[in-house]
């Protein structure tokens, strides 16, 4: 009997170790941060000469915000080119604007106008280019964290797209140069259209029912499932315990 207990304990320990291992988030992305939070209402200096706040801009149309700086020798240019290419064949362009915003305080309205010209977007009403004096607060509100590298005189930063709906809430974020389908999801989200999605990785979420593996497309059971069985298991133990105790007492009496 004792051997059986030992065997069961070892087998269960192995099972739980596997489950616990499955809880660890596998990606380093932080796209889940700041979702459904209000974006900071920064004052914008737009390339068309307007001075509006971000919330005012969003109120007329949802916004896809791209954070770049004009002196970037790295990802900013390919990032914007790819974004333009992904969006150029979209026919329903009325349901969102693209705001290219510099996070570099050195950038001026002229720099942004020049950038729009270099991308052949200066006359495209869907695209807006802007600078802001509130960039630090805005960065904080969207979870964007560029780090100045003094040796290269460049910012070390992510290629970040932030989806903001008409109410000024961040609905989705995309980090890196992404494909059309990801962009499609972003557009749906800013327009408050439901998109089925799997839970976002979060190292603080310890008891998931299932862990989705994007590579295999499969769910594996998580510790959360075990929690679902806990009440029944405790009740069974309680039932057997009480039953044993009262019988034992009866025999002793």
């Amino acid at each position: 009997m004792f051997k059986h207990f030992i065997f069961i304990i070892i087998a269960l320990s192995f099972f739980f170790t596997q489950l616990a291992g499955a809880q660890i988030a596998s990606t380093g992305f932080e796209e889940e941060n700041n979702i459904y939070e209000k974006v900071y209402d920064a004052k914008l200096n737009l390339n068309n000469g307007d001075n509006r706040t971000l919330t005012q801009l969003c109120a007329s149309k949802p916004v896809i915000l791209a954070l770049i700086f004009t002196r970037c020798s790295g990802i900013c240019n390919p990032f914007l080119v790819q974004l333009k290419e992904n969006l150029q064949f979209k026919t329903d362009t009325d349901n969102f604007s693209v705001l290219v915003l510099s996070f570099d305080p050195r950038d001026t309205r002229e720099d942004m106008v020049n950038l729009s010209k270099s991308l052949n977007l200066e006359n495209n009403k869907q695209w807006l280019f802007a600078t802001t004096g509130d960039i630090e607060k805005l960065n904080l509100s969207v979870g964007f964290n560029p780090v100045w590298d003094s040796i290269r005189s460049q910012y070390d930063h992510d290629a970040l797209l932030v989806g903001i709906n008409k109410e000024g809430y961040i609905t989705k974020k995309l980090i890196g140069i992404r494909n059309k389908s990801d962009l499609e999801l972003l557009i749906r989200s800013v327009n408050d259209v439901f998109s089925p999605s799997y839970r976002l990785p979060n190292k603080n979420r310890l008891f998931s029912c299932f862990n989705y593996n994007p590579e295999t497309g499969k769910n594996t059971p998580g510790l959360g499932l075990l929690f679902l069985t806990l009440p029944a298991v405790i009740t069974l133990l309680l039932l057997l315990g009480i039953s044993y105790t009262v019988r034992h007492k009866r025999i002793l009496i």
């Binding site: 603080n204 008891f207 998931s208 029912c209 998580g222 959360g224 679902l228």
Partner: peptide, 19 residues
Amino acid sequence: FSNGAFVNDALLMKNLTYF
């Protein structure tokens, strides 16, 4: 009470709620 250090799984919570 964890101030964000612990987050629940929505699916687990819904299952438990209806359980």
